[in-house]
Design a protein around this nucleic acid. Structure first.
Lengths: 365, 365
DNA sequence: GTGAAAGCGCTAACAC
DNA sequence: GTGTTAGCGCTTTCAC
């Protein structure tokens, strides 16, 4: 038989512990919350008694007068995207170590869902971590004025955050491709609402201009395998010999579709991803990609958030580096490709999309 | 400048809403908690006022007298394992729809970590969902007596749960291999603490006995890419022409390692995984694997848990089917392999491991 | 159908 | 250092 009604455990309260120790309830409270303000001996006695009575502080009762729930909300753009794994694990570890509970919510790449979670959790958590937020700057700013908030993988001058500098990563990627002889590079764009997408594009164009390469932006596509698949036809007819995708999932999707169309990677097309997910090691060819320290980002974001919550200042905007990992999806440009793509056939920076992208227009001149 | 101290929003209380409406606080409370027990007109008035005053119930204040936090804890064996994605998403959707908040915690494949989370969250949540619990039956039973608890992907007669029937999936896998001419099959075992691992092994041996095939169990290995890599040497010298791995990650790891050793898949070795993760479509060759309805499992588990919490009975143990998806990692046994593996060289069921596995000894006779 | 009142278990002044 | 005393914002009897 299945026991459908568990016997609820009656936990002892602070008062019962107090009585057992012959002290006031407030002393028991202090023994847990501000250990220094209680006599070491009596504190020990209280802790021991509490221990053997099975006392566990009631979080709700704690939160009510103090206003602090010791809970943090982590909103992630896509929980199935391996990019977030290390961030989640890092954040969880740091939260745990600091005595906080982490509530994880998936925003499914949608600003509205993100906003809903934000308002739904507003009174349950002490602060928010927004990993790859898809909301507008204005909305984020507004949210950060109502509750402690730290951004991950997004940068705003006036909001605390931990960002990953793929700008420099893009430089490494472009230099790698240039060294292999590529002159025309496509960028497979991810969501326009993604700061890191814009950042990658600006990093890419800056490096390309310096090295006198031509770049085209294709998309935007969904930052998923399917998005990558969708990009393949555009890429195939782009006249480029190499592509840098917004992330690994897209890169892998593109790679598969190209192969299905009989286009060899890297023989006829080199591909670079970003995030260094597990799959980038076992797709074929294995993916050249950017690696960054998600674990560190998660930890750092939590500790920044805890500082913000406690009203301490600090240097709230952290930048983490990223690094190119060269595998087998990039190779020298083929003679045929080189011949079929006369330099100057396309302008230095072309945007093959109808979607607006402010950061681009300023650069495409 | 970064604003490190957000201006905390002072939310109106139930009393302020009450005053604005000229009713008692308790009526406002009822308007939200038990809508039927309040006059429809006054209720509408209250809801409107609350709306425009920006009233949001305080979860802690709610939880204190009621004892219910409207929060559910979902403990997952490995948050980076794609097997859990659909389960997480399904659970999140169902929880959301029922007005519950989901706290997600990663147990890192460790029973102790799982127990720690269980006790840490005990007073913060109304119940637990344990996805692929690594704890012992005894411990799970004990936990389920202290708090509402529903198992996912594990079966115990006396604890509510949603299990995935890979027993029948294994039958499909073995029949598929038998049809391709394989006579010797290896099982790459996952964690011994995993119910589904044991279940897969019994399903495999039962089907193999019926079809008069021989099976060997190798491992256990970690249920990860690395675990799969580790299994490859054992598999290569096992004398088998096909392997069924505990999950896709292991299958992919094994596949890569075999290829590195110059062993062709499926030419010299057929491989079957389980879980149908995204990576199983883009590893090469694409993986033949078992698919199951994680989303449904997650949803179902949440609704069962809510029933358990509210003391309602029902049919608390659900079984979900699984289905074989044939891709390219399985093929006909090669003539060479067939020749080199005389039937009868190894006993019908061999266990090439020193680890204890109760379910096995009973079957290996 | 609604109001009054008594807590839920804890924290945080404030005294001493 | 420790005890006393108010609440925190809500739910939930119990009257009416």
């Amino acid at each position: 038989m299945v026991r459908t009604t568990p016997i609820p455990v009656r936990y002892p309260t602070i008062h019962e512990v107090a009585r057992a120790c012959g002290v006031a309830a407030s002393t028991v409270s202090r023994a847990f919350s501000s250990p220094t303000r209680v006599n070491a001996v009596t504190r020990e006695r209280i802790l021991t008694a509490a221990q053997q009575m099975g006392y566990r502080p009631n979080p709700a009762a704690r939160a009510l007068p103090s206003g602090r729930s010791l809970t943090l909300g982590l909103l992630v753009a896509d929980i199935t995207n391996p990019f977030f794994f290390d961030i989640i694990r890092g954040a969880e570890k740091a939260a745990d170590a600091a005595g906080y509970t982490l509530v994880l919510a998936d925003t499914a790449e949608d600003a509205e869902t993100e906003a809903r979670h934000l308002s739904r959790l507003a009174r349950s958590v002490d602060g928010f971590l927004l990993a790859s937020s898809r909301m507008s700057d204005a909305r984020i700013r507004q949210a950060s004025e109502r509750a402690p908030l730290v951004l991950i993988n997004r940068h705003m001058r006036d909001v605390a955050g931990v960002a990953i500098d793929t700008h420099d990563g893009m430089r490494q990627a472009v230099e790698h491709l240039a060294a292999l002889g590529h002159r025309q590079i496509a960028f497979l764009s991810g969501p326009m609402t993604s700061w890191s997408n814009r950042r990658r594009w600006t990093g890419l164009t800056a490096a390309a201009r310096r090295l006198e390469l031509q770049v085209v932006r294709l998309g935007p596509y969904a930052p998923t395998l399917d998005g990558g698949h969708a990009s393949a036809p555009d890429l195939a007819r782009s006249g480029c010999s190499a592509a840098i995708a917004f992330n690994d999932l897209m890169a892998i999707g593109a790679l598969l579709s190209l192969q299905e169309r009989g286009i060899d990677v890297p023989g006829q097309m080199s591909i670079i991803g970003s995030d260094n997910i597990d799959g980038s090691t076992y797709c074929r060819p294995a993916l050249t990609t950017l690696h960054s320290l998600g674990d560190t980002a998660g930890r750092q974001a939590v500790s920044t958030l805890i500082e913000v919550i406690s009203g301490r200042a600090g240097s709230p905007v952290t930048m983490l580096p990223s690094e190119l990992i060269v595998r087998s999806s990039t190779g020298p440009v083929s003679a045929r490709a080189r011949a079929s793509m006369p330099v100057g056939a396309i302008p230095p920076v072309a945007v093959a999309t109808s979607s607006p992208m402010s950061a681009v227009s300023a650069l495409s001149g």
